[in-house]
């Protein structure tokens, strides 16, 4: 009965108005095919709706996809919302994040950043390592 107990549950969402959902949908399938349970929230989420989902779904990790150059504002806001909610769950940001912004995001508390062109192996390995380190 222990074979399924380590199954990773990840919440995937688009925060704010950004409607580019090609990447997040591809990633959802990659993670499903890697055996994870993906709780897909879709477009136009708020930090509150994501926090609520993480609590109710007891997710192991949150993944945000960002394509509108809003990551320097929105990702720290998400980290802060999780902190305020007393939720100790790591945040991964994927999408269009220039190298120059990686350090700022890491300092803001983002656990990992997946830039453009990350392969399926990188995506899956990053989620696994972030969860196991949490």
């Amino acid at each position: 009965m222990t074979d399924k107990t380590e199954q990773i549950r990840i919440v995937l969402a688009k925060l704010g108005l950004d409607g580019h959902d090609r990447g997040i949908k591809v990633v959802a399938r990659m993670l499903r095919d890697a055996g994870m349970e993906v709780i897909y929230l879709g477009l136009r989420q708020t930090t509150d709706s994501i926090v609520a989902a993480v609590e109710q779904e007891d997710a192991d990790v949150v993944g945000l996809s960002m394509h509108n150059a809003g990551h320097l504002t929105l990702a720290p806001a998400m980290v802060e919302a999780l902190r305020q909610g007393d939720i100790d769950v790591p945040l991964i940001v994927g999408g269009i994040v220039p190298d120059a912004d990686v350090e700022a995001l890491e300092q803001a508390g983002v656990a990992a950043i997946l830039g453009p062109g990350a392969s399926a192996e990188e995506v899956v390995a990053t989620v696994r390592s972030v969860v196991s380190e949490a």
Binding site: G16, L17, N68, A69, G70, L72, L74
Partner: peptide, 22 residues
């Protein structure tokens, strides 16, 4: 910009971080 495309004003909470960007 994205708020304009979504029918949101620049002072909407939804517009945070998006005003004049794209």
């Amino acid at each position: 910009d994205m708020p304009t495309l979504m029918g949101r004003d620049s002072d909407s909470p939804w517009s945070l971080g998006e005003v004049g960007r794209a």
